[in-house]
């Protein structure tokens, strides 16, 4: 039962965490994230970094698709722009690691604004097609602008260096990737407490009355595109330092669909949604791998027989969530929280 949450100031009422229970859980989460690298083995650390990178990108796509209502299938291409930007800056100019990541975000944001220009005229499926077209154009650029992108063979990226320390292992990179992602999620949460976030939601819900309220549609749609692709660019930059090679096939079109699916499965238009969605989409295939291994002793040859089944189970899980939880995983969390707010008086 949740009691004694009366607030005396508007600042307290508009905070991100409004109850002590929430604050306590947030501290627990921060501790778990800080201590995880010392407990997890290399493989799970690798997965943790990958989840964090995907969370950053999915959060960006959620700002555009979940909150502003502009469907985009170009998120992977924007990530690729960020990754190539990092590869180029690191290889040719030798600028510092964190600056490169920031620059990757800004360059991707500039490309995002260009891709977003049609959004004033076209919406929904038509805009989705326009972003697909843009991602194929970008793919063509990556393949053919050999002097910058290295063509089909791609470019190698040197290990990141921060304060003279080489960050080559997932263990070292974890301490950069996870805090950067956390900051980006915090930024998104802050955004939707201010006039700009409200304007995005207004455009999604009813663009005509948004305009009457004094929200210039083109400016805000482009801002949403810029921000979303900034997130993708930073995520792509971190990806480049993590995998240390970028080719045109690093970010196939299917990756864009992966991110859209992650945002939908997690919950459109919620801060928690893309976090849960990206974790789900990244980890479930791996967990299914373990399930197949455990089944090995019971069903001999399980590995060979069940590997294809794994993909089908993964697809079926996504459909299951779309049908039974259309609001996404975030809604399940909300329902659990509501249960404990009222427990034990109403269950």
């Amino acid at each position: 039962m949740r009691i004694a949450t009366a607030k005396e100031t508007y600042i307290a009422d508009e905070g991100l965490l409004t109850t002590n229970t929430q604050r306590a859980w947030m501290i627990v989460l921060a501790l778990v994230l800080a201590l995880a690298p010392f407990v997890l083995n290399a493989y799970w650390l690798y997965l943790a970094c990958l989840v964090a990178i995907n969370v950053a990108s999915a959060t960006g796509l959620n700002i555009l698709t979940g909150y502003t209502g502009l469907v985009s299938l170009g998120q992977a291409a924007f990530m690729a722009v960020g990754a190539y930007a990092v590869a180029f800056l690191d290889g040719h100019l030798g600028t510092p690691f964190l600056l490169n990541i920031l620059a990757a975000g800004l360059i991707a944001a500039a490309v995002g604004v260009l891709v977003g220009v049609p959004s004033l005229r076209v919406k929904g499926l038509y805009l989705a097609i326009a972003t697909i077209a843009a991602s194929f154009i970008l793919h063509f650029v990556f393949t053919n602008w050999v002097s910058v992108t290295g063509g089909m063979s791609g470019v190698n990226v040197a290990p990141a260096r921060l304060f003279g320390i080489e960050l080559a292992s997932p263990f070292a990179l974890y301490f950069v990737i996870v805090p950067v992602t956390a900051l980006m999620v915090l930024g998104a949460a802050n955004l939707f407490r201010t006039r700009i976030g409200r304007a995005f939601i207004a455009i999604r819900d009813r663009d005509i009355s948004a305009e009457v309220l004094g929200i210039p549609l083109l400016q805000y749609k482009l801002m949403s595109f810029a921000l979303s692709s900034f997130y993708a660019g930073v995520a792509g930059g971190m990806w480049a330092y993590f995998f240390r090679v970028v080719t045109p096939e690093s970010f196939p079109f299917a990756t864009s669909i992966f991110f859209l699916a992650a945002v939908i499965v997690g919950g459109l238009g919620t801060i928690l949604g893309p976090i849960l969605g990206a974790a789900f989409m990244t980890l479930v295939p791996e967990l299914l791998k373990y399930v197949v291994e455990w089944l090995g002793p019971v069903f001999p040859n399980a590995g060979a027989a069940l590997s294809p089944v794994r993909t089908i189970v993964f697809g079926a899980l996504i459909i299951f969530f779309l049908v039974f939880e259309p609001q996404g995983l975030a809604e399940i969390v909300r329902r659990v929280r509501r249960f404990f707010h009222l427990w034990p008086f109403k269950t």
């Binding site: 802050n190 955004l191 201010t194 006039r195 700009i196 976030g197 409200r198 304007a199 939601i201 207004a202 999604r204 819900d205 009813r206 009355s209 948004a210 309220l213 004094g214 929200i215 801002m223 921000l227 238009g269």
Partner: peptide
């Protein structure tokens, strides 16, 4: 705006008179 609370709907009315930019937000 159906997806928002009453308070947020009302706050939206003030949009044009506010100055917060993206970075500050």
């Amino acid at each position: 705006f159906k997806g928002m609370t009453v308070l947020d709907n009302i706050k939206l009315g003030r949009h044009a008179h506010m100055r917060t930019n993206l970075l500050e937000a």
